[in-house]
Design a protein around this nucleic acid. Sequence first.
DNA 1: TTAGGGTTAGGGTTAGGGTTATAGCCGGTGCGTTTCT
Length: 515
Amino acid sequence: MNKTLEYYLEKYTGHNEFRTGQKEIITDVLEGKSCLGILPTGSGKSLCYQLPARVLNGLVVVVSPLISLMIDQVKQLKAEGFREAVALNSFLDYTEKQQVYHNLDQYKLVYVSPEMLQNPYFLQRLRKQSISLFVVDEAHCISQWGHEFRPDYLKLDTVIQDIGNPPVLALSATATPDVQKDIIKQLNCEQMVKHIHPMDRDNIAFVVKTVESDKYKLDYIAALLHSYQVPTMIYFSSRKWTEQAAEILRTHVPNLRIAFYHGGMEQTDRILIQQQFMNDQLDVICCTSAFGMGINKKNVRLVVHYHLPTQVESFIQEVGRAGRDGEASVNLLLSNENDQLLPKQLIETELPTHGQITMLMDYLRHLVESKELTIDESLVSTQFQFNETQWRFLKYQLEVHGMIKEDRLVQISSSDRKAIVNDIHLLVDKRKKLKLAKLTDLINWIHDKGCRRERLFLPFQEQVRPAKFQCCDHCGFSFEEWNPTITNKRITSDNWEDMLQSLFFQGEHHEKQTS
DNA sequence: TTAGGGTTAGGGTTAGGGTTATAGCCGGTGCGTTTCT
């Protein structure tokens, strides 16, 4: 490569300067080094693999957690004139998938889900390609989702090995040192070069408001929305509550456009609500944690937590959706003494109980003894009352321990079986303890008397920048002194070209340079 | 002759009232699912 990186940047994106962190990562990647890149949101993380994809020979595989993210990225790349990118997922029908499988060598960039990387046929095709780089986008998902919710995230190390150990690039905006360590461990990439940038946000003020009971929370929010009609996100931990709260707030503040959003909604409704919020056609979203990843709205001024997330990591991610344009923004957490009940319940139901595990293992022994080696998964789930996550967690553990291979039971000795039951019991206890400790960290932060910004970020980075505007309720923040900038865009022009332009970009929720 | 209104019977759904038992909170995040290359 004789040309400078700046030459390629200019050639492919039209920009003449790299943003913070990009150049170092791209340089390492082009030299074949594996990297962990923690870059703030909006710093253009995707350029770190999209530029190498154009320069390097061979295929770049990008693991992405959401189909909507893959589709957005491919759409944007095609709009920039890069046609050798494709998103491979269940949105494609059989023939389309076959097309991609058979023409893999014609692409430079393929986006896939971790689940898709368990498809034996796809893996077989992938092995025949020369893979120049293996990317894990939103890499914190490995740590936050992999252990229980989406175990295929923990199988990526095997995939990497299987396709010939290409260099690995793991990217995330918010990964605490614990999560960073976990990412490196799970990917089995001890030699990763770290490019860690601080994740504190100097334009967000932190406020905790303690109320006597939950019913005062909505009153407080309604009063706040009366005074501040700014783009607002309100986080709940229950789908039902997002709907009820939206309804109640609509009657309290009828001049605001308020909607709800959660994972149980129809796909088309989700897309519609998301796009309306992006385009300032909605003012307030009552949502669960389903609303967030990949949403890059710049002018969110207020993020409210009605319920408590289960861990500080999620809290930081959700808080970070405010003030992406750098303007003064506020995070408000509404608290009362029952805060921990709901997150505790969520942690409990994520993992199976000892009793369930023991009964399942007895049942499996019985199956093997009667020479029945296939498992009827839906029967098992109903019989032992596993939810989806619990069963997936257990199935993965049984695979790890060699009791299930290629969906079939394996005959093992009874002493081995006892050891495995014991192992899984210990693991469940360890995971629950870890998760409860993370919840306790967050609850301690609520009751801490120190500076909120410092106490939130200092455990994760060496220094916390001083607040650009107001800091927090412990450093003298008051809503009276908060004058949020209003930037809601509307179609105001009479010019048909402007109107067409804004219509065209409805629903585009990526920045131009994220690339 | 046809369009459109009215009637009727039968099946299914929902709202609302009455009764009884008992808990208080009842829960989040998404991918894949087809084929013999």
